[in-house]
């Protein structure tokens, strides 16, 4: 049967994708010319961007190490992006070889790529899901088969919540997931904020309107609210480089230039 002309196709390679743009910032080549030209334009307006992205990715690494150090062996990484150096399962499995990780993303290309990379790995699963539909994510059979929600889980929402617009009610999504988590579970969030660089934020958000996932930067107070029902672990919700830096010097002298907040909370 022919596809009726009125049924839209889902994979549109003519628009930049947040996942691939991010890969470019991190020095990867898992990207297309649309992604690179958007990224170059962004960098020309805001040269710190690659550093900010690296700072974000480094937070992800530190958060996973910390959580694995707390004995957590199950990770639910929502908005996981394109697999690149320092994937969550690599970091987690260094600490505990039987750690299990589910990667969830709503970008079909990122999902297909993740599946190709992780094919055959029993301890990981890749789910095409959307943070805005948390019930479906929690019910997903692959999620259920890989992690046990009745035991502590670390949920990672790293650099993803700013892709959920206010009208899609990100707080509800986070709360829905929180309510399904066992005691001892954790939530790690990093989130873009205009508070560090109010001058650059607007043009940057403008650029992301070209992608299927427009960007909403939020204030520190707004981001803190996502941790309702969680107790923030030290040092709380802070600029990206300030969250448990491995050596104090690496935080740099102007951490607010890395315009994002990061935090990890423990479910009450």
């Amino acid at each position: 049967m022919d596809r009726p002309s009125w049924a839209p196709s889902e994979v549109d390679l003519s628009r930049p994708s947040a996942a691939r743009v991010y890969d470019f910032y991190l020095g990867g080549s898992h990207n297309l010319e649309v992604d690179r030209s958007m990224a170059r334009e962004a960098i020309s307006l805001w040269p710190d961007l690659p550093a900010i992205m690296q700072s974000n990715r480094a937070f992800l690494r530190r958060a996973v190490r910390h959580l694995a150090g707390q004995g957590i062996t199950q990770f639910l990484d929502i908005g996981s992006g394109i697999p690149t150096v320092g994937n969550v399962h690599e970091v987690a499995q260094q600490a505990s070889p039987d750690a299990r990780v589910v990667y969830v993303d709503n970008d079909p290309v990122a999902v297909a790529h993740s599946r190709a990379i992780l094919a055959g790995d029993e301890r990981t699963a890749v789910v095409h899901g959307d943070l805005r539909e948390p019930e479906a994510v929690l019910e997903d059979s692959r999620v259920r088969a890989t992690i046990d929600l009745d035991r502590p889980v670390a949920v990672l929402m790293v650099a993803v919540l700013h892709f959920v617009r206010d009208e899609d009610d990100p707080a509800r999504a986070v709360a829905t997931i929180r309510d399904r988590l066992a005691p001892g579970s954790h939530l790690a969030i990093s989130h873009a904020s205009a508070e560090g660089r109010p001058d650059s934020a607007e043009s940057h958000q403008e650029l992301y309107r070209r992608t299927p996932t427009p960007m909403t930067m939020r204030s520190r107070a707004e981001i803190a609210r996502f941790f309702d029902g969680f107790d923030l672990v030290e040092p709380g919700l802070v600029w990206l480089p300030l969250w448990r830096p491995e050596d104090p010097s690496s935080a740099g002298d102007r951490p607010e230039r890395m315009t994002g907040f990061a935090g990890v909370g423990r479910r009450r």
Partner: peptide, 20 residues
């Protein structure tokens, strides 16, 4: 990586078509 991403894109397209 270019090859990988293009293959992933093709794969994703095919899956989308199939789901559709």
């Amino acid at each position: 990586e270019q090859e990988e991403i293009l293959r992933a894109a093709a794969e994703a397209r095919e899956q989308a078509e199939q789901a559709l």
